[in-house]
Design a protein around this nucleic acid. Structure first.
Length: 270
DNA sequence: ATGGCCGCCCTAGGCGGA
């Protein structure tokens, strides 16, 4: 039984950053790469570059200009129905089965600026998306399903040390109590393990995203952990917790995404 | 709060990101 090495990365335009993606694949050789914010339609996706890099299996949920997710793999992918989380017709999820593991690649709405669903429809959409994840994963848990890994840009930093300042971010969308409670409810009801915290404990500052607006992202270091990898009860025993890696180096260099890749390794049944 | 940027689109300011 060989490892399955899975990476999630909000790439912020796959076409603009295809060379960076290929360098990353060359350097780290994951088996499965889950991308968010590809920002293109399926027909515009740079398939050939991935094939050349050894990733022949691709499942895409594309959309013109915004959003969009894709999962690419060295191993065959079985496309599954993506659960109905979004309800706005946006390309925010793709579900696959690879070597006996279900992998859900998700892009939760950012939610706009104002953390009040009454006056901000984007925040209402985000909360609705989170509620749907809760009910759908609660139902799934009760069934006889395959091991499940949920990855993606969930746009919520749930723990105190998932943000640079818990106090200063309590009213900032991504760390408000209503979102944080929602995310924790999914984890609890769905039987998920938040692999980052299982691997590193509660006290270490962990960030996967740094704003473009900082003059020097590394020096100011005002990051947030928005990108997540969860395992359900069937998958958790298969995960090698010590393999959890945030590839911070990919936030640097020429024209980076504002997110970095996040990786885990697990045993795969298939 | 970082509001100091970035990428997209019927190319230029508006939208969305978070």
């Amino acid at each position: 039984m060989t490892d399955l090495h899975i990476v999630t990365w909000n790439i912020n335009s796959v076409r603009l950053r295809i060379d960076r993606v290929c360098s990353f694949l060359d350097a780290t050789s994951p088996d499965v790469l889950c991308l968010q914010e590809i920002k293109c339609r399926e027909g515009e996706y740079p398939l050939k570059a991935f094939q050349k890099a050894g990733y022949e299996h691709v499942e895409i949920a594309g959309q013109k200009g915004y959003h969009g997710v894709a999962t690419v793999s060295r191993y065959p992918l079985q496309r599954l129905d993506t659960p109905e989380f979004c309800m706005h017709g946006e390309a925010r999820g793709v579900a696959v089965k690879v070597r006996g593991v279900e992998v859900h690649n998700l892009y939760v709405p950012a939610g706009g600026d104002e953390p009040d669903p009454e006056i901000n429809p984007k925040f209402a959409h985000k909360l609705d998306f989170i509620d749907r994840m809760d009910s759908i994963y609660t139902t799934r848990r009760a069934g006889n399903a395959d091991p499940l890994i949920v990855v993606g840009d969930l746009n919520i930093a749930p723990e105190e040390h998932d943000v640079w300042s818990h106090k200063q971010l309590l009213k900032v969308v991504s760390h408000t109590p209503i979102e944080v409670d929602g995310l924790k409810r999914i984890i609890s009801n769905g039987g998920f393990t938040d692999i980052a915290r299982a691997a590193r404990g509660p006290d270490e500052k962990l960030y996967t995203w740094w704003s473009y607006r900082a003059r020097d992202w590394k020096a100011s270091n005002r990051g947030r952990r928005l990108d997540h990898i969860w395992s359900d009860e069937r998958a958790t025993p298969l995960v090698e917790m010590g393999s959890y890696t945030i590839h911070e180096e990919d936030r640097g260099g020429e024209k980076p995404s504002d997110h970095c890749p996040v990786a885990i390794r697990m045993k795969a049944p298939g």
